[in-house]
Amino acid sequence: MGGLQRALSWVFPAQCILCTGLVEDTGGLCADCWKRTPFLTGLLCDTCGASLPGESSGVEHCDDCLSMSRPWAAGRAALSYRDLGRKIVLSLKHGDRTDLAKPAAAWMERAGRDALRPGTLLVPVPVHWSRLLRRRYNQSAELVRALSARTGLACCPDALIRQRRTPPQDGMTVDDRFRNMTGAIRVNPRRRNEVEGKTLCLIDDVMTSGATLAASAEALWGAGADQIFVLVLARVEKET
């Protein structure tokens, strides 16, 4: 750290990304927020990253992934979508907190280390242009750029296009969510050669039913993708 940076750190000490608590490095969580952030650890579903009860040394799957076919090889999530996990996602998505993409990328890298293999291309789930115009950024693309900078993996932020503006899915059943996403996403014709024959990692901010990720994956399979993994910042989990 240079002299000017040291001086600034004394005058303006780094603060927690979620509160006013002091931290050692910019972009970190204070000890209290770290304890209250629901990181997903322990036994997890290999397909969607949801937490599972018990312990196992083998591959396990949740009930949802046993009952439906997922169009990707494996999936991981860094956080559970509750409490501070939900606050982080909503702040990134709707609160103009694009600065959260950098620390989120660090958590996602740790959660998805098996999927982030050399040669993997990072692809974000797209948003419709009308929502992009209002929001000014795609939070999933921000996560992709931060992950690319952190891992050195190539990314293609505009590989997918959301060609139809879908209604918000809050309150929809699982079946309705999948119907809602039918035909909504396609591969960008200008990027087809970039995804053909490649191992891809689909990135999104949150997974609920998996309908949006499934529509994205199906579009990529149609363009000739060789293998697809899924990595999200947070996973909505069923209450037990």
Score class of each variant (00 low, 15 high):
33 C>R: 07
34 W>D: 13
34 W>A: 15
34 W>L: 15
34 W>G: 13
36 R>H: 00
37 T>I: 02
38 P>N: 04
40 L>W: 05
41 T>H: 01
41 T>D: 02
44 L>K: 11
48 C>W: 00
48 C>G: 08
49 G>I: 01
49 G>K: 03
50 A>F: 09
50 A>K: 08
52 L>F: 02
53 P>T: 12
55 E>Y: 09
56 S>W: 06
59 V>M: 03
60 E>I: 07
61 H>K: 15
67 S>N: 14
69 S>W: 00
70 R>L: 14
75 G>C: 06
75 G>T: 09
75 G>K: 03
77 A>I: 05
80 S>E: 07
81 Y>L: 01
83 D>Y: 08
84 L>D: 02
85 G>Q: 05
88 I>F: 08
94 H>E: 12
96 D>Q: 14
96 D>R: 13
97 R>C: 07
99 D>P: 03
101 A>G: 01
106 A>E: 11
110 R>L: 06
110 R>T: 10
110 R>E: 04
111 A>V: 04
111 A>N: 00
115 A>R: 10
115 A>Q: 15
121 L>N: 12
123 V>K: 05
124 P>G: 06
125 V>M: 00
126 P>M: 11
127 V>H: 09
127 V>P: 00
129 W>P: 03
130 S>H: 14
131 R>L: 08
132 L>H: 12
133 L>C: 10
133 L>Q: 14
135 R>F: 12
135 R>A: 15
136 R>C: 11
136 R>V: 12
141 A>V: 04
142 E>P: 05
144 V>N: 09
145 R>Q: 12
148 S>T: 09
148 S>I: 03
149 A>S: 14
151 T>M: 05
152 G>E: 00
153 L>I: 03
154 A>I: 01
155 C>I: 02
158 D>F: 00
